[in-house]
Structure formats: C-alpha cells, structure tokens
C-alpha cells in the first residue's frame, strides 16, 4: 500500500517539525492577541459586552484585556476621538511594544462618524495606523469578534521575519492630500 504523507510523519522525522519561521511566529501571535481597550465613548460598552460571558471574546484567544499599553499588542479604539485626545491616543500607541495592531471600532473611530465638528478627529487613522475598521454606531459585539478574527487572519499572513529584521517596519497613517 502506498500512502503519501504530506505533513509531519513521526516515523521519519522523530520529534522534529519542519516549517517556515513566519508560519510559527504568526501562529503564536495570532492566537495570543492581548487587546487594550481604548474606550472613549459608547462603543466601549459594546466592547465590554464582547468581553463578558454572553459573547465571550476568549473563545478566539484574545481575551486578555490589558489596561496598560506596555502589556498589550492590539489597541481597540472604541469611541469618538477628539483632537485633544488624539495626542494621548498616539502617545499610548507608542508605548505599546512591537508588533502591535490597531482596531478602529465604530463610525467615530473610523471616520469621525456623526461628529462633523471642530472638536472631533475625522478618523483615528490620522494618528495611528489602523489594521481593521468596524462599521456601526455602535457595532454589535459580534462585529467586534468578526473584526478580531479578521485581524487574526491578517496577522497570519504577515511577513514577520522580514519585518523583524527591517529597520522599524513603519505602518503608514493616513495623510490627506488636501490638507
């Protein structure tokens, strides 16, 4: 009988697994995202609901909400960011260790939402590089879970080793052509 073994074969390889560094690093990273809630408005309530037992974000390996940027690697910006707060958001983002990701939760964080006014930053992507945007006002907890799973997919496909060796892999923030 001729059976083909495409992956790990303990008889041949013993206790050694051959793979790519990227695959291992990304696999580890994507299953242990430590989010930091940047709760600034009503979206934070939905964020809390996602952390509670009913929606239970821990099913997907990202439940360790840390309230210090130094212990977190994913900032969830949940709420309206004013210009006064924008500086603080950026400073907190910079205190997070690399690699780090940002999720813009809800209309306000993504684009300013209904606050077309002198006080409100029109999208948090103008101060920090956003990986995933969530629509909704506020989004349902399921939408947040979906976004976090999308983020995991994104992390899975990153060039981790290349980024590790690169001189500070700078993610781009949004720059307006007009302004």
């Amino acid at each position: 009988m001729n059976t083909q073994t495409v992956a790990y074969d303990s008889k041949v390889e013993g206790e050694v697994i051959v793979t790519r560094a990227d695959a291992v690093i990304n696999w580890i990273r994507k299953n242990s995202v430590w989010p930091m809630p940047m709760g600034l408005a009503c979206c934070a309530i939905e964020l809390m609901a996602a952390g509670g037992s009913r929606f239970d974000i821990s099913r997907f390996g990202m439940e360790v909400m840390r309230f210090s940027p130094r212990q977190a690697d994913c900032m969830i910006v949940a709420g309206t960011v004013t210009y006064k707060m924008a500086e603080v958001v950026r400073r907190i983002y910079e205190q997070m260790g690399d690699p780090k990701w940002v999720v813009a939760m809800g209309a306000c964080a993504s684009s300013g939402g209904m606050y077309r006014s002198y006080a409100t930053l029109q999208g948090v992507d103008r101060v920090v590089p956003v990986d995933v945007y969530i629509s909704g006002c506020p989004p349902r907890p399921e939408a947040l879970l979906d976004a976090m799973i999308k983020l995991q997919e994104k992390i899975k496909n990153e060039n981790s080793v290349k980024n590790l060796l690169a001189e500070h892999p700078v993610k781009k923030i949004r720059q307006d052509a007009a302004s």
């Binding site: 210009y83 950026r90 400073r91 077309r116 006014s117 002198y118 029109q122 101060v127 302004s179």
Partner: peptide, 27 residues
Amino acid sequence: FPLAGIETPLPAEDIVGQTNLKVAAAP
C-alpha cells in the same frame, strides 16, 4: 465660528512631527 472648525495647529510638537496632524475643517 463655523461648525466645521478652522484649521489650527495642535500643541504637541513631537506628535505633530510624526503624524502631520492638525485641526482641519471637518467635511
């Protein structure tokens, strides 16, 4: 004062240096 706001520089120089952020009139 227009509701959309008036273009204004922000006070934190280091942050502005990294992001080019300023208050821009909202659409």
